[in-house]
Amino acid sequence: MFDVDAVVLDIEGTTSATGFVVDVLYPYSRSRFAALLDERGDDPDVRRAVAQVRDLLGEPDAGAGRVEEALHAWLDDDVKATPLKTLQGIVWAEGFARGDLVSHFYDDVVPVLRRWHADGVRLHVYSSGSVAAQRAWFASSPAGDLRPLVDGWYDTENAGPKQEPGSYHRIAATAGTRAGRLLFLSDRPGELDAARAAGWRTAGIRRPGEPYYEQGVGDHAQAGTFDGIGIRTGTAGSST
C-alpha cells in the first residue's frame, strides 16, 4: 500500500508487453523510415530529429540514406537514442491514426488505471518512447482512448535519461508534486534505483516472459500485476 498523490508509469514491460513493441512496432517503423525522411523532411520535428542524428554521428552532412542506416543500427542494438524515438513516434502516430496499429495493454492495467483516476490519483507516463508515441499508444488501445486518464507525458527529451536521478527531479518539479508523494512503476531496476535516489516511492512490476523478469527488481517493492499495488491518497505535502 502506497500513500501517494501521483503514479508515474513506464510502458514497455510494465503496462504493456515488450514483445509487442519489438515484434510489431519496431518492424513497422523500420519499414517506414525511408518514406518519412523523403516525404516529411521539411516537417520541423523531423528536421530537428535528423539534425540530432547527425550530431550523434558526428556527421553534419549525413544524407537521408546515412540517417536511415543509423536509425536501423540503433534499432538493432536497442539504443534509446532520442531522435530515433522521436521519428518512431511520428511513424507510429501515423500508423495508429490510419488504423494500421492497435496498442497493447496487459489485461490488469486499464481497470486499475481507471480506478486510480476515479479515486483522484494523478497519472503520468515516463517512457523512452517519445511523447508523440505515448499519446498515440494511449489513444489507440483496445479499450478505447485512454489519454483522458493521463495528466502528464515525459520522455528522454523533456525529462532526461531514465536511469539518472535528475530526470525524476525534473518530472517532480514539472508535475508540481513532492518527490515523496510520487510512485514510479517500472520493470527495470536501474530506473527504479534512479527514481528512489530522487526521493520517489518505487515498485517493480515483474511479469513472466518480460526481459527483466529473471533479473528481478532488487530491493524495491514488487508486484506481478497492477492489482497487487494499493494506492491511497492524502493532501499533506502534495505540491511543491
Score class of each variant (00 low, 15 high):
47 R>Y: 12
48 R>K: 06
49 A>C: 04
50 V>H: 04
50 V>K: 10
51 A>L: 13
54 R>Y: 12
55 D>T: 06
55 D>W: 01
57 L>Q: 08
57 L>H: 12
57 L>P: 03
57 L>T: 13
60 P>A: 10
60 P>V: 11
62 A>S: 10
62 A>E: 07
63 G>W: 04
63 G>N: 11
65 G>C: 05
68 E>M: 08
68 E>Y: 07
69 E>Y: 04
70 A>D: 00
71 L>Q: 03
72 H>M: 15
72 H>I: 09
72 H>L: 15
72 H>G: 11
72 H>N: 13
72 H>K: 14
73 A>N: 15
74 W>K: 14
75 L>M: 06
75 L>T: 10
76 D>A: 15
76 D>E: 14
77 D>S: 15
79 V>K: 15
79 V>T: 15
81 A>G: 00
81 A>V: 02
83 P>E: 01
83 P>W: 11
84 L>Y: 04
85 K>I: 08
86 T>V: 15
87 L>Y: 11
87 L>T: 11
88 Q>C: 11
89 G>T: 10
89 G>Q: 14
89 G>I: 14
90 I>N: 00
95 G>C: 10
95 G>W: 10
96 F>D: 03
97 A>T: 14
100 D>V: 00
103 S>K: 06
104 H>T: 03
105 F>G: 07
105 F>N: 10
106 Y>V: 04
107 D>K: 00
107 D>W: 00
107 D>V: 01
108 D>V: 03
109 V>M: 13
110 V>N: 08
110 V>M: 06
111 P>L: 11
111 P>Q: 13
111 P>H: 12
113 L>G: 06
115 R>G: 12
117 H>V: 01
118 A>Y: 00
119 D>K: 03
120 G>A: 06
120 G>D: 01
121 V>T: 02
123 L>V: 09
125 V>A: 04
126 Y>P: 05
126 Y>M: 05
127 S>D: 07
127 S>N: 11
128 S>D: 05
128 S>T: 13
129 G>H: 00
131 V>P: 12
136 A>L: 07
